[in-house]
Design a protein around this nucleic acid. Structure first.
Lengths: 196, 196
DNA sequence: GCCGTACGTTAACGCTCATTAACCGGACAA
DNA sequence: TTGTCCGGTTAATGAGCGTTAACGTACGGC
């Protein structure tokens, strides 16, 4: 661990690289982007990246592991804050996921698109983090809708992720608050259908 | 046009290739799959594919244009059959999209993942078909929920697509009818939130 | 019996691209 | 002043891969 991810000073070169790499990978796919391009995006050229990362794979790995960890950490925080109120928890999970999806659209895209390009070890780690995050949601959903059995709740959670993660593909004139509001309503509308 | 896509005789070599290419592209991405691999999947080797397609790009193009055309054709058919009943139309659109998503999971994945790999001309064609399909949905949604303005309806339609298209990512023990039922309920639940 | 077409094969070409080598200037501590 | 990281540079390397060349075989029509 070099520096904390939450600061307000200028972004380090490393962070610039990660940010631009995320954007480019999301736009044209991992294999569709060359290291020279990533370098150019931060003002250095090609092999200069190797002063900061052992390879192209490592950038993707760090991005995907990072997203998954932040999602899970955020989810756990909300569980802890919810004090056992299922409705409040699910609301907080939805809001948190929306914030994340709208803040980091490129990362969301990468998250379900480029997982297979990782080395076995990294892929396992990301999958494990994703699984735990889903688990959080499944438990929250089932607490609120006991009528739904486990596989049903799990599929519904995946579907709601698909709904919320649709925003990167979208070029809409809607202002951010309106979009947040809309997504929240859609998500809760979908989940409400589990009540029977 | 060589042969009709709806027959019951053995699939032609061309069709085998398209099917396997779709699967492989969906699994590992367009750039992640080599022509030798596609060839191997149908029992011939690498360059033999060039007897059936002018190049790797052409396979992707035919797949994406094909999906988009079938989706749009299906949508138009349902509009024609709905006789102006908005609720029935939206129900039919949802059911049709679910069928498609569950029948052709690899294609659904490709559809929103590899569009940028196409030559300009093909990409334009696919985008235009997609746009028209979305338009169908937007009109159906607005007919049923006049309270929603146009950008809102459009964003909601994209979100519902995200919801319905989430199934390829999913490995669920749910049987197909149960999954169809669940997705239908989730989609209608989400859309119902537009009623205010 | 002959010929053209359809459909394969393997070998070679050429380009792209990640990675490595070799080199360099500047900041800065001793 | 001198030495040593740090963060760059450009040039070379080497693998992978799409595509083309050159060649072979079965078969259907005439």
């Amino acid at each position: 661990m070099t520096t904390s991810p939450t600061r307000m000073d200028a972004p380090t070169r490393r962070e610039q690289i990660l940010k631009e790499a995320a954007r480019l990978f999301a736009e044209r796919g991992f294999h569709g982007v060359g290291v020279d391009e990533i370098g150019a995006a931060v003002g250095i050229s090609g092999p200069g990246l190797y002063r900061h990362f052992p390879g192209k794979d490592a950038m993707l790995a760090e991005l995907l592991v990072g997203i998954s960890e932040r999602l899970l950490a955020g989810g756990r925080l909300r569980v802890a804050e919810s004090d056992g109120d299922p409705a409040a928890l699910l609301g907080a999970l939805v809001d948190g996921h929306i914030d994340f999806a709208l803040d980091d659209r490129p990362l969301i895209t990468l998250h379900d698109r480029e997982l297979d390009r990782l080395k076995d070890e990294d892929r396992k780690r990301v999958r494990q983090l994703q699984r735990q995050y889903v688990e959080l949601w499944v438990e929250a959903v089932r607490a609120l809708h006991p009528a739904a059995d486990e596989p049903e709740a799990r599929a519904a959670v995946h579907a709601v992720f698909g709904l919320l993660n649709s925003t990167p593909h979208l070029r809409t004139p809607l202002a951010r608050p309106a979009l947040e509001h809309l997504l929240r309503n859609l998500a809760h509308g979908a989940l409400a259908s589990l009540a029977r």
